[in-house]
Amino acid sequence: MMQAIYDRLKDRFQLGALDVRSRKGLAFVDLRREFLRPVLTELRDVEGFTHLILLTAVDWIEDERFQLTYLLNNRQKNLDLGLRLRLDRNLAIGETIHDLWPTAATYQRELREMFGIAFPGSPRVDEEFILEGWTDMPPYRRDFDTLAYSQQTHADREGRETSDPREFMKQILYPKD
């Protein structure tokens, strides 16, 4: 079923290969940015993918890009389709789809705050959402190290020390080696 939908859309929107590896009823497909809106509209209005399950990002820092994942659900046929969109990591500006799904505005607010991906035109997108008084880089980016940040902000309780059995045993058994 997914294949049929894909075949209908593939050529018109220059979709990437259909990735159906994970489970039945779920597929992912790569999408080019200029086709995002037409594909989403078509999927929603024609193919019955009326439900936006989630919109999130993956930071592929080694490739210098963000992957935006739009996960849609066709409730009638029980299909989940994930659209993967590449964004340049250094120029992270996405396209808002809050007019297609109002609920996307919330997701976009979160992406703005947590990944620093801008969505111009999305309602209240620049308001603080989850964090308050955050001044560091967006925390979900891969180069943000949460442990390092935490240790530089909140000190650990003192008096804890651990030993590595490998080193410790050498010290005991072969103090001179």
Binding site: D143, D145, A148, Q152
Partner: peptide, 8 residues
């Protein structure tokens, strides 16, 4: 931990 990470 990334030893080079510095908090802003």
């Amino acid at each position: 931990m990334d030893p080079n990470f510095r908090k802003d």
